[in-house]
Design a protein around this nucleic acid. Sequence first.
DNA 1: CGCGTCATTGATGTGCATCAAGTGGTGTGG
DNA 2: CCACACCACTTGATGCACATCAATGACGCG
Lengths: 221, 221
Amino acid sequence: MPIGLSVEELKRVDELVAVRRPVKRGAALFHAGEKFTSLYAIRTGFFKTCVNTEDGRDQVTGFQMAGEIIGLDGIVNDQHTCDAIALEDAEVCILPFDRIEEISREVNALQHHVHKIMSREIVREHGVMLLLGSMRAEERLAAFLLNLVQRLQTRGFSKSDLVLRMTREEIGSYLGMKLETVSRTFSKFAEECMIEVSQRNIRILDADALKRIVNPPQHCH
Amino acid sequence: MPIGLSVEELKRVDELVAVRRPVKRGAALFHAGEKFTSLYAIRTGFFKTCVNTEDGRDQVTGFQMAGEIIGLDGIVNDQHTCDAIALEDAEVCILPFDRIEEISREVNALQHHVHKIMSREIVREHGVMLLLGSMRAEERLAAFLLNLVQRLQTRGFSKSDLVLRMTREEIGSYLGMKLETVSRTFSKFAEECMIEVSQRNIRILDADALKRIVNPPQHCH
DNA sequence: CGCGTCATTGATGTGCATCAAGTGGTGTGG
DNA sequence: CCACACCACTTGATGCACATCAATGACGCG
């Protein structure tokens, strides 16, 4: 993950990511309440994380794909605070956290990398708070699609075609809206020729139009 | 901050927190876009952090009080991504981040402490996402009050009386509602004798009732 | 004292939730 | 291989929680 390491350092980091674990679609990588021991780096597959309340509500807090790290929430109390569920067959690297701390004392680049990963997650969540706190349904869904396709693109996938790995309900939970509203908003975007929707296959026809929805152009006052 | 350190370790950590900086009410500790160099530990006073969009919307992402750390969002891109504004005259310790990384390589307790602080922030934000994504106005405000009074209590303040340092609008921004709705909801709680409101002075008369609003009792099915 | 800021309260509007019915794709067992 | 059941999804009709608009009131400060 970090770059510009010496051979020696690379060896230390390599041993960290040695152990892998497959996770079947629908299975949990971990559950809220379980003891925290490791972070997980996604090698393949797609996950969601979600928190639950006693009274049965739950909230999807994120969708994670290859290259991303899951489990950071567990550090503070040595206990996971959310569920991580595979949305398709997946494989992760197990990164024992005490080993991470040990090695980052010696490999500065790893230390800084870990800090950046946690900081990035904090910044991402700020963005979600902005979305949940001040955007309307169309803006939320447009922002969601653009974010998803952008992340897929950096992984070498198409910047226009994507396959949703999650249900409308899961999207709705993440975006703070009901599945019917998600569906209607997809239909509206399709009507306006910004996207094509066929089941979970989405084709983005006019990314700029979506961007204009998220960031409506300034009107001069 | 961490505990159980040797004399030697304590000295290292002490030098970290040597420099202080006063911040006047209404002034910014930092702005989004500024270069990130340090974290800040609040010694006294009260802050808000907020992110802004190009189109002028903004979202309060948190309220911080004595003992809490601000600036974690800046690590990932060496640049702050939100504003930190003092809501009353305040004083912070400046914690140069490169020194933090340096010392945490030698003082394991500090290293782990830093990780916990970042993880705690991630978990806190999960809670806010749950609040914004799935709660109604009354639930949000009740949760907010309970959280605030709980944090004040651990700092030795009353568990029933508190003074809000922020405006209704700032509360609303944090909770994803308009200031009028915040005001109305306060009035409603007061009418139902759960709290007393007089300007920014709040007295909690029935904490259990507030808790029942946040976590409505299960109905057997 | 007068002005600006913040807060309260009422009247009205609307975006999204809720409730409900129906469609299509997928997997399973006879 | 087809019939059936199930699930995710779509779409329409209705309702409600909260936003919006507007007027007034309460502090605090120069």
